[in-house]
Nucleic acid binder design. Structure first.
Lengths: 220, 220
DNA sequence: ACCTGAACACCGTTCAAGT
DNA sequence: ACCTGAACACCGTTCAAGT
């Protein structure tokens, strides 16, 4: 009676991170994790709800370790800093794509991540807008950020395999130049341009555009 | 010798759409499709490369049927119209999320979809910017659009099941109001605000912000 | 309370063999 | 040329049964 549990949330999280770091995140399956921990797959279900729950706990752990404690006091700077922090944190975990679109994702975020959400909403409010506008700005920025992560995660260099990044094969090779002249003209440069990291630059344009729009609504 | 093939690209696409329409897109698997067509699963691999290839062909077929032939001549309107058309087309196919992040996605798009890409790049150029800036604006808009589709596809009402949309359960229930005051203040209204479709509104702010930024770079 | 063997209900893909 | 049976190499999850 009462022998100590062999499995714990802590041990599971450590094992999961070990598999991700050693074998690549695609190899993190419930069955492999069970082998790693030398327990039965079914045992895991006494400590986690399901695989998505495990992934979410892993992401929150990562967020707590990488997201900043404090954000700038100037409203616009705060919005940019919070969004960029979310972006950079997610970009460092390619498997984040697996969990970003999980149902009720926002509601299962830890404190560190919620601080970034608060940072964006408060930034918009401190800029002179309503809280409702703050939520809308957050949502728009979140779509942009998640999209960047999701699209980029699955394209270009496959570092988990030993693939070459293949930046020199040309896109749109067989298009009709008379129908799509601009695409034909930029064809050979597309891959190079697409490889550039323009997240923060476009983010600034987005935030400025959203703040101008919100201000225009408040005072017509 | 030379008996006619029982299977064709056309028959496969029709079968796939039948399964999606009748059973929901989650049920579209290679094995089920084979059962539907009364052929062996292995036979499919003589007509398609793999499952992703099938999904991409399905998406291009859908794009050809739903995307507009012509776009507005006014540059800014053209950008907005092209992006909105891509968005609406994808929003009508929830399984699009499965294929949006496929490797080399852009390079495998059909003519109808490429017309939208051309529309955005040409709109930026006609607005007085360079083709390079056109590509960057397209990429930024694409991240935002794909993100909206991907995040929304997996959240809120599960129409494939008979679920209630459950808009009345409250987010951020156990947060510290002294640490996250704005989130605490908007908590009860979040779900309602998040359910609103604000894609086009924020898109306009994004495009305006990007065009202003691009113009500022060209003439400092 | 905690753990497990064995099963359930599937996947996508390959390949030697058949007509 | 076109098709298939059978296998390969896996998945996540459940549940009755054991200690």
């Amino acid at each position: 009676m009462g022998r100590p549990p062999l499995t714990s949330r802590e041990r599971i999280l450590v094992g999961a991170r070990l598999i991700i770091d050693r074998d690549g995140w695609e190899k993190l399956t419930i069955r492999r994790l069970a082998v790693e921990l030398e327990i039965a797959p079914a045992t895991l279900y006494h400590h986690i709800q399901d695989k998505e729950d495990l992934l979410l706990q892993l992401l929150n752990q990562h967020a707590d370790q990488t997201l900043p404690q404090h954000l700038p006091s100037q409203p616009r700077d705060r919005i940019i800093a919070a969004a960029t922090a979310m972006h950079d944190s997610l970009a460092a975990w390619p498997w984040a794509a697996e969990v970003l679109t999980a149902d009720g994702f926002l509601g299962r975020l830890g404190t560190a991540a919620l601080r970034m959400v608060e940072g964006i909403v408060s930034g918009v409010v401190d800029h002179g807008c309503t809280a409702e506008q703050g939520v809308q700005v957050f949502r728009s920025i979140w779509y942009y950020t998640a999209g960047e992560i999701l699209v980029r995660a699955h394209s270009g260099g496959h570092p988990s395999n030993g693939w070459p990044p293949a930046p020199n094969d040309v896109l749109f090779e067989h298009i009709d130049a008379s129908q799509l002249p601009h695409l034909a003209g930029i064809r050979t440069r597309w891959q190079t341009l697409a490889a550039r990291d323009t997240y923060t630059e476009a983010l600034q344009a987005f935030v400025d555009g959203l703040l101008v729009q919100a201000a225009a609504k408040t005072s017509p």
